[in-house]
Amino acid sequence: MNDALDVALRLLIVFVVFLTFPLIIGQTEHKVMAHMQGRLGPMYAGGFHGWAQLVADGVKFAQKEDVVPAGADRRIFQLAPAVALLPYLLVLLAIPIGPGEGAVGEVVDAGVFFVLAVMGVGVLGSLMAGWASANKFSLLGGLRTAAQLLAYELPMLLTAASVAMAAGTVSLPGILDAFEWWWLPWQIVGAIVFFVAGLAELQRPPFDMPVADSEIIFGAYTEYTGLRFALFLLAEYAGIVVLCGLTTVLFLGGWHGPWGADGLGWVWTLLKTALLAFVVIWLRVTYPRLREDQLQKLSWTLLVPLSLAQIALTGIVKVVIQ
């Protein structure tokens, strides 16, 4: 009975995190982006500096009519948002935020593989949406999504493999247990490659070619309205949470910190994740969108070689220190 309660509690906590963190990041994005552009951002909703803007947005989305285009493939069109969203919920289960068994939703033996595999599945949602909309812009968006995923999955996997080599395990808590501070400079190239590739996989600016609103309206999500559209947006922001959490766990040492690692480890994890989320927003504000061919080129001619070099470096150092 106690076990069941424990599992239920963990699931509940993960679910609450899944629902709130993306909103917090979304609100931060509103405000940070506004201030980086010399604006104030939302100021009215909720009274104090527009803190409830996203709640208001959610209410608005929920009120809208759920439209399915006449020419669309109905079932797949309606299923796509769920396929896009759920993988991130699953991934969130496996990310440890503190030391010990208690601070992770579910210990997965091959955590790195689980996380990357399930994240890759999320892209299927965009593909399904793009195809099922019966819209040229959507199809183009879906195609670009697929091309982007194929290009960036590889460097992501390779750099994650580099960390797994360094730690000698593919379990996320195991990697954290093995972490030492000097991994930071050792794996820095891998960290950058992983983060950039993750951004590209999430289709965040400057890698938002698949949704490039000035050319293909909103890519695969063009035909979506109301709650389903909101689910896609939620998937994007949940993706940010997951990517930042993963980068924290894999490369930045998760709950390790200069002090207070015992009781306050989770604070470190959250702090690092929040910092990375800020960087995600910062990059979005700063850089213009990459063109499709630049996007492919960046992956194949820069990130993949860099990640291979990182793996080689990891291997060499690993052999030397043994």
Binding site: L124, L139, L143, L149, V170
Partner: peptide
Amino acid sequence: EFIAWVQVLIYVGSVVVLLLFGLML
């Protein structure tokens, strides 16, 4: 477990996406 996740990663995540990409193209 390991094989299971690799199955998801390679087949669902990449091969099917490649397949869909080819189909849509």
